[in-house]
Every structure is written in structure tokens, then in C-alpha cells.
């Protein structure tokens, strides 16, 4: 369905007078924005888990015999906030997808 639609859009844009570069910039890229946003958000959230040091540092608490659960949970909650914020911001972009211009 997606390739079919893209082909039709390309055909329509070609007849309308757009060259390949403009078809990508004016038609394909705007239509791909929601998908690009989604991929971007996933990439960011995944890297937040692995790479950002404060999150990784949480694991240090688990090494000692008497784990301070209250501290662990408090820090965890605070560090969970940025990814959550990112998630909710990007979600708005993702669901603002375009529909209805083609029927498959």
C-alpha cells in the first residue's frame, strides 16, 4: 500500500511538474516526518538507557549488600522524567500523521 501510494504521489507530482529532488523535498519528506519522528524518539530513548551515565550509575547501588531502596527509587524516578518527557513530546508529533488523501 505504501509503495503504491508513493508511486501515485510521485506520478501526480511528476505531472504537476516537480523534478525528483522536489518530489522528495516537497512530498516524500513531509509525509515521512511522523515515521522519522518515531525512529528518532526510539533512538533517543534507547541511548538514554545505555549511554547516559546517571542512569547507568543507578546500577552501582545494587552492588552493595544493604541496598538503599529508598534512595534507589527516588533517583530512579527523577531520572525517568527526561525520557518520559521526550516520549510525550514526540508522541504528539507521531500521531499528527496525515491520512485520507489516498484510499487503498
Amino acid at each position: 500500500m505504501l509503495t503504491n501510494s508513493l508511486m501515485n504521489w510521485s506520478g501526480a507530482a511528476k505531472i504537476d511538474g516537480a523534478n525528483s529532488f522536489r518530489i522528495i523535498r516537497l512530498i516524500h519528506l513531509p509525509l515521512m516526518m511522523p515515521a522519522l519522528m518515531a525512529i528518532g524518539a526510539y533512538a533517543l530513548l534507547l541511548s538514554a538507557d545505555r549511554e547516559i551515565t546517571p542512569a547507568a550509575a543507578l546500577r552501582l547501588f545494587l552492588t552493595t549488600d544493604d541496598t538503599p531502596f529508598n534512595v534507589l527509587m527516588a533517583t530512579g524516578a527523577i531520572y525517568a522524567l527526561p525520557p518520559a518527557a521526550v516520549y510525550y513530546i514526540f508522541k504528539r508529533c507521531m500521531v499528527r500523521a496525515h491520512g485520507g488523501a489516498v484510499r487503498s
Partner: peptide, 27 residues
């Protein structure tokens, strides 16, 4: 195609979803 002076109507409309009706028609 663009220099053949033709216009085509497609089966699944092929409207540009991110443009208003006005922009679609004027594109």
C-alpha cells in the same frame, strides 16, 4: 510528463495529505 500539457486523475486520488485543498490544487 510535465511538458506534455496533460493532467491526470488517479484512482486513489493521490492528493498530497500535508497540503490543504487550496495548496493541493495550486501546487
Amino acid at each position: 510528463p510535465k511538458d506534455r500539457d496533460i493532467a491526470m486523475v488517479f484512482q486513489n486520488y493521490a492528493l498530497y495529505p500535508h497540503m490543504t485543498v487550496r495548496e493541493n490544487m495550486g501546487f
